[in-house]
């Protein structure tokens, strides 16, 4: 399979924060959910891909090209959706789109109008009059109107109501249908990832914890629950994280077969969802 995005040994330091030697790939035709707590390094990674900030070391290839040496070509093939509105608030939706459209050779006003209609936006309305959700939809409409092959979205669904989030998810699923486009979607709303991502990359404290197919991740891990008597006889090293309470314990592990063989029906083995995996991995309450 052809990679649309390849990141290798990428590092960036900012004051106390360090993006530490990270790497992951996105194949053509897939949506990758980029998850992690606030301040984990999601926005920094996306900004590095867009060359908005300078990397200390490492390599980023988009469409097989170095993202700095072929910046202009790469950017003409990327659609970028920000986590905040950076548009001219006093100008209308149409005027803001005009300012952007000129830069893209493949810009299609027909496509833009189609998305504007789908999202229920009024072209004459000023950006400052739009809600956060509407601004994100405008941003998505511009990102989708120039035949972008890769969509980079930084927290597009944060602060949106469930209906708007579902609309965006539907649009993204339609977008990758032809198998030639990909999406990197950063969020801390795990339910969105569970609905649409094919791959999940989890970043925590500037390090990649895992980057794998979503189904494989869900298949790989189990939550094992048992009483205090069992807790005394197990080795904590077999677990990624154990949570204790006065009645017993629950822990995330990959070696659940081992526990099933030893303890049989005395333990409960549950299949975790991505959110639960992440909560155990972070080892603290995840917001």
């Amino acid at each position: 399979m052809e990679n649309i995005l390849e990141i290798k040994n990428l590092s960036k330091s900012y004051g106390n924060f360090k993006l530490d030697n990270i790497g992951f790939n996105i194949e053509k035709g897939y949506i990758m959910g980029f998850i992690g707590p606030n301040g984990a390094g999601k926005t920094t990674t996306i900004k590095l891909i867009m060359n908005l900030i300078k990397r200390n070391s490492g390599e980023i290839k988009v469409f097989g090209l170095d993202n700095i040496n072929h910046e202009k070509e790469i950017k003409s093939r990327i659609g970028f959706v920000y986590d905040e509105s950076n548009y001219y608030e006093n100008l209308s939706v149409k005027d803001n789109a005009k300012l952007i459209a000129d830069f893209y050779e493949k810009w299609s006003w027909t496509e833009f109008d189609r998305y504007i209609n789908i999202f229920g936006l009024d072209k004459k309305q000023k950006i400052k009059e739009l809600s956060k959700g509407m601004k994100t939809k405008f941003s998505l409409a511009t990102a989708l109107s120039h035949e972008a092959e890769l969509l980079l979205m930084d927290e597009p669904t944060s602060g949106l109501d469930p209906v708007s989030r579902q609309e965006i998810i539907n649009i993204l699923q339609e977008y990758i249908e032809d198998g030639n486009k990909s999406v990197l979607f950063s969020t801390h709303i795990i339910s969105d990832i569970e609905k649409m991502a094919d791959y999940v990359t989890f970043i925590n404290k500037g390090k990649i914890v895992f980057s794998e197919e979503k189904l494989k991740i869900e298949d790989e891990y189990r939550i094992v629950k048992g009483g205090l008597d069992i807790l005394e006889s197990i080795s904590e090293e077999d677990f990624i994280q154990i949570k204790r309470n006065k009645y017993g314990f629950s822990g995330l592990t990959k070696d659940y077969h081992k526990f099933q063989n030893i303890y049989g029906s005395n333990i409960v083995v549950d299949k975790p969802n991505i959110e639960e995996i992440m909560l155990y991995m972070v080892g603290e309450k995840y917001e």
Partner: peptide, 18 residues
């Protein structure tokens, strides 16, 4: 001032222009 106020440089630098 517009660029600064809306941090438009962020948009501008994500467009295909050096």
């Amino acid at each position: 001032q517009y660029e600064e106020l809306y941090n438009y440089d962020c948009i501008l630098n994500s467009l295909p222009i050096s």
